[in-house]
């Protein structure tokens, strides 16, 4: 950050310098107040995108289920089980599963193992940046009840308090076969029209946000990351 010609008002000392309100000097010498959290980010509150009815929604759900694009984001030790999934031995492609490098284009996020508070923040960002409908697969006992880190000062115990989870796959760690089974379970759920986690999240946004903010003490991002 270029520190010359930038002034910080006294308030907001708790925010990191990047997100703090500041006054910069414009080209005509005028003062411009910049509030990063308001000026850089969309502050709109999301609305639930309700499913259509009948056969159209069924058809769409079929397509969504048969084309699962997974965000390549490994949160914990479980992410080591993902690459074999795509190898010739397990070949997840045949189920329509593919990896995408950007949350915008992905419909599935896999929480692969323990989740520290710090990582949770990134998970929330990535999850909110995915488009409706989106699905969450939680891998391993750590995401279910904390697993071997159940009494850690820094690792969450229950993922479903922070983001809605569609499928839990138990184990420490689950093998690729188990993950494939989990994908098939997710497909089944979607085809049954039960993959509405994204809308659940938006409908219960306040509860989720309260849980998230309880453990993320330096909440320095907008309430919803579009």
């Amino acid at each position: 950050m270029p520190e010359d010609n930038v002034k910080y008002p006294a308030e907001d000392q708790s925010l990191s310098p990047v997100n703090r309100k500041r006054v910069v000097i414009g080209p005509e010498g005028e003062d411009i107040l910049v509030d990063p959290l308001r000026d850089y980010y969309c502050t709109a509150r999301p609305e639930p995108e309700l499913p259509r009815q009948g056969i159209i929604e069924k058809f769409m759900n079929w397509a969504r289920a048969e084309s699962l694009w997974v965000l390549g984001f490994g949160t914990g030790c479980g992410s080591i089980e993902i690459p074999p999934l795509l190898s010739p031995r397990y070949d997840a492609y045949r189920f329509g599963v593919a990896m995408r490098p950007t949350p915008r284009q992905s419909s599935v996020i896999i929480i692969s193992g323990y989740l520290s508070v710090k990582t949770l923040k990134r998970v929330i960002r990535s999850y909110e940046q995915m488009q409706n409908p989106k699905f969450v697969i939680a891998l391993g006992s750590c995401t279910i009840n904390g697993g071997m880190y159940w009494d850690s000062y820094n690792t969450i115990n229950r993922l479903d308090h922070y983001i809605p989870v569609d499928v839990y796959i138990a184990g420490c760690m689950p093998r690729p076969e188990a993950i494939l089974a989990g994908f098939n379970k997710l497909k089944q759920r979607i085809k049954e029209g039960r993959g509405e986690g994204a809308n659940d999240y938006i409908k219960n946004l306040d509860w989720y946000k309260a849980n998230q903010k309880k453990i993320i003490k330096d909440w320095n991002m907008p309430d919803y990351n579009w």
Binding site: V18, P36, D39, Y40, Y41, C42, F73, T102, P103, R104, K121, R122, V123, R125, S126, Q129, N220, M221, N225, W226
Partner: peptide, 12 residues
Amino acid sequence: VKQFNIVYAGEA
């Protein structure tokens, strides 16, 4: 959306 609403590998 606004300028920082971009996907940035989970970061801002």
